[in-house]
Design a protein around this nucleic acid. Structure first.
Lengths: 225, 225
DNA sequence: TAAATTATGTCAGTTTCTTGTCAGCTTGCT
DNA sequence: AGCAAGCTGACAAGAAACTGACATAATTTA
């Protein structure tokens, strides 16, 4: 899942970036409202974590313009204080959640997960495809309750394929969701990862079908379409 | 198991903290209602022991707010007197048990154990995994009635793994359950403890499987997944 | 109370796993 | 056939996890 973090505090920024990256997100970071606003005009994210106190353009403004463009990406707002007025203002402008500093990292992560869930799978923590169940809350995938041993990359790839519910997912989409800007990733790297994931899923009668020129899709082995 | 003790009486506080720590709990202590309330807004516990007469914010209020946030952590209330009215009020607000001072330490410990049991193992004092049985009432683990010689840390770790019933337990979760705030513990310390416990369990055909990047899970040696 | 034992964290060296790159192969289309 | 797209085994750098050795603190024993 691709996440944009907009935060000017250097320490917080680094800590959050590291934490989210470790949790398997592709993270981009912007340090001021203006750059964030520009970036958001052409780059899609699965979730945005937005500080309100920002140089150049404050968080409210970034959020306002984002929504004005019709963008519905879930946004979680961070503020320096437990300030009811700002909270109300943020939610009015279309924020989806709100967290006052100081906060626990665990709580932030939990809320971000909740936002992503709400957006893609109607609020449920689990996405399933036949007997395959992906639990987004603890990033674990199991087949008939047997937990699969998958690496972060494989997990991220499978998550995307499952969230798209057996629809074709293009390589461009995969690239976008698995990689933040700074890590360049070749298309071949995706092919390699698909190949690896394929081996692990084939055992359970699930295949990743290649749609030449278009992308990949998740399917059951017997269902020849 | 992680326990929060909220108590302003210095002597009682120290005594209980020492006793619970010795019994293998990771104990955090708060001396007033306000701090406890804040702490509880982001930190999870397995059980809370709450005095009613507290400075800043009384115990009723702490409990009320906890439940208002949807938190279902078992709470045991302590009060100065055998006061039926307060007892009823506490239970109405969502307390799970009640103990009037003065009380026997042994009784408090027994009730706390009972509360934890009720939550995780359906009320039974014993949790088992194959021939491995963990008796929470005396904190002892045995394999086919042969008692194992385990240290507190190993016991706590195994307890957590067994309660999670062969599901993956993350290092973060382990850290959270084995350590109170003031004792910092590195991730490597967990690895070392896992390594030690592993050696003792392997003898009985039980393994602690590593799920790289996610955590550990208890399994029987033969079940290769 | 001092010595012995036990518990438990830190460290460092090693092992294992992850993941991108590359090269050569396969597949499908015209 | 010839080309482009895709597949996959091999490799290597780096990250994560394991574990023996040691240090220190807590507990027990004599």
């Amino acid at each position: 899942m691709r996440l944009l973090l907009v935060e000017d505090d250097l320490i917080l920024k680094d800590g959050l970036e590291r934490a989210f990256t470790k949790s398997g997100y592709a993270v981009d970071v912007m340090c001021d409202g203006d750059s964030a606003n520009k970036l958001l005009s052409y780059q899609e994210y699965d979730v945005i974590v937005l500080d309100l106190g920002l140089p150049k353009l404050d968080g409210f403004e970034v959020l306002k313009r984002l929504r004005a463009r019709g963008n519905k990406t879930p946004v979680l707002i961070l503020t320096a204080l437990e300030d009811t007025q700002n909270r109300v203002k943020g939610l009015d402008l279309g924020a989806d959640d709100y967290l006052a500093k100081p906060f626990e990292l665990a709580e932030l992560e939990a809320r971000v997960r909740a936002l992503i869930r709400r957006g893609v799978s109607g609020g449920s923590a689990k996405v399933s495809f036949g007997d395959l169940v992906f639990d987004t809350s603890n990033r674990q995938c199991s087949f008939n309750n047997i937990p699969l041993s998958l690496s972060q990359r494989e997990l991220a790839l499978l998550e995307l394929l499952m969230l798209k519910a057996a629809k074709v997912v293009s390589k461009a989409k995969i690239l976008e969701h698995l990689c933040s800007w700074d890590e360049g990733m070749s298309e071949n790297a995706i092919e390699v990862n698909v190949s690896r994931l394929r081996k692990k899923l084939n055992v359970f009668g699930i295949e990743i079908r290649t749609i030449r020129g278009l992308g990949y899709l998740l399917a059951k082995l017997e269902n020849k379409v």
